[in-house]
Simulated assay, not measured.
Amino acid sequence: MKKQRAPGLIAIVLYKTFVASLLTVTSIALLFALKNHQVLEEFSQSYLLESKLKIIEFILDKVLILQPKKLLLSGMTAALYAVLTAFEAVGLWYEKAWATILVLLLVGISIPPEIYELVQGVTLLKLAVFIANLAVLWYLLHHLPKHGKGA
């Protein structure tokens, strides 16, 4: 007989999987930018971007002002956090107690900086992430005895 998982738990696992995927793509992009910094500089000055593709021009401008050490640190940090987030998702899927505690700890730690960011300026993305993390925190706190049976 197949085990039935709660819809809230499935939603959290999907959210964590999405975040891990996004962090992986970010890490790859940052490390790619580090490896190809000179090529990106040349590309940003090429005719191809002149008055076209404003979003690419904007992203390139942001990436090119970063020093190589910052690109490396950011890329490696994003990769590490992607692995940790994927680890959380797998642990939650199998309803492991350590995963529930890890998610509560990491989400709980992220709430104060998210509040600070919202005070600095509200954007739809910041607000969505804040609400999603509050929902994860609330759900896991209220369902802690149910999710987290196995060690």
Score class of each variant (00 low, 15 high):
Leu124Lys: 11
Ala82Val: 09
His143Asp: 02
Ala99Cys: 08
Phe87Val: 01
Asn36Gln: 15
Leu34Ile: 10
Val119Thr: 01
Gly108Val: 10
Leu102Thr: 13
Leu137Thr: 02
Asn133Phe: 05
Val19Leu: 05
Phe87Ala: 02
Phe58Ala: 11
Leu31Phe: 11
Phe43Leu: 13
Leu124Asn: 09
Thr100Asp: 00
Pro112Cys: 01
His143Ala: 05
Leu30Ala: 13
Phe32Arg: 07
Thr123Trp: 04
Arg5Thr: 09
Val83Pro: 08
Val13Cys: 15
Lys52Gly: 04
Leu64Asn: 07
Leu118Asp: 07
Ile59Lys: 10
Lys52Met: 10
Lys62Thr: 05
Phe18Asn: 07
Ala135Glu: 04
Thr123Lys: 04
Ile131Gln: 02
His142Ser: 04
Gly121Phe: 08
Thr100Glu: 04
Lys69His: 13
Tyr94Pro: 02
Ile28Phe: 05
Gly8Val: 07
Ser74Phe: 14
Ser74Leu: 15
Pro145Met: 07
Trp93Arg: 11
Lys35Ile: 14
Ala135Gln: 03
Ile28Lys: 05
Leu9His: 09
Leu127Ala: 09
Pro112His: 02
Tyr116His: 04
Val107Asn: 01
Ser51Glu: 15
Glu88Met: 06
Glu41Tyr: 10
Phe87His: 09
Leu48Arg: 11
Thr77Gly: 11
Leu92Gly: 05
Leu125Cys: 00
Leu66Ser: 10
Leu40Asp: 05
Leu49His: 01
Ile101Leu: 10
Leu106Pro: 00
His37Ile: 10
Trp93Asn: 09
Leu102His: 01
Lys3His: 12
Tyr94Ala: 06
Arg5Cys: 01
Lys96Ile: 12
Leu14Pro: 00
Ala33Asp: 04
Ala128Trp: 02
Val25Trp: 03
His142Cys: 03
Pro7Ile: 12
Ile28Asn: 01
Ala89Tyr: 08
Leu71Arg: 07
Lys70His: 14
His147Cys: 03
Val107Met: 04
Leu64Thr: 06
Ala97Ser: 11
Met1Tyr: 08
Ala20Lys: 06
Ala29Val: 15
Leu106Tyr: 01
Ala11Asn: 13
Val107Arg: 00
Lys126Ser: 07
Pro68His: 10
Ile12Pro: 08
Lys69Asn: 14
Ile55Val: 14
Thr17Ser: 15
His37Leu: 14
Tyr116Ala: 08
Ala82Ser: 15
Lys70Ala: 15
Glu42Val: 11
Leu31Tyr: 09
Leu14Arg: 12
Lys54Leu: 14
Gly8Leu: 08
Ala82Thr: 12
Leu104Tyr: 02
Ser110Glu: 07
Pro7Ala: 06
Leu14Ile: 11
Phe130Pro: 03
Leu141Asn: 12
Leu105His: 02
Leu53Gln: 07
Trp138Cys: 00
Leu40Met: 13
Glu50Gln: 15
Pro112Ala: 00
Lys62Arg: 14
Ser46Trp: 09
Leu125Met: 08
Leu102Gln: 06
